Computed example of a mutant assay.
Amino acid sequence: MAVSVQAADVINNRATTIVRNGEQPSIMGAPSNFVGNARIDPLFTAQAPSTVSAGAVTFQPGARSAWHTHPKGQALVVTAGTGWIQQEGGEKTVIKPGDVIWTPPGVKHWHGATATSGLTHVAIQEAVDGKNVVWMEPVSQIQYEASR
Rank of each mutant, 00 (worst) to 15 (best):
L43C: 10
V77R: 05
V3H: 07
I11Y: 11
W110A: 07
A48D: 04
T114H: 12
V128P: 00
T16Y: 01
G81E: 00
A54Y: 00
I85G: 08
G55P: 04
A113G: 07
A75S: 11
P71D: 05
R20Q: 13
S53V: 07
G73H: 04
A2T: 14
N132W: 09
P71G: 06
G29A: 06
F59G: 02
D9A: 15
E91I: 04
T120C: 00
D99S: 07
G112R: 10
I27A: 09
W102M: 12
V10C: 04
P138S: 04
A56E: 09
V52S: 12
A38P: 01
W67V: 05
Q143E: 15
A7P: 00
G22F: 09
I27Y: 10
S147T: 10
W110Y: 11
M1E: 08
V107L: 15
T58V: 02
I18Y: 09
G98V: 06
Q60K: 04
N21Y: 12
V19A: 10
T114N: 10
I142T: 15
K72G: 01
V139D: 05
V3N: 05
V134H: 13
G73I: 01
P49H: 07
K72M: 08
Q74L: 00
V128R: 10
L43V: 14
H109Y: 11
T45K: 13
F59Q: 04
G106P: 10
P71N: 06
R148D: 06
G36Q: 00
T103V: 15
S117R: 11
A46Y: 00
K108P: 10
S53T: 13
R20E: 11
D9T: 10
A113Q: 08
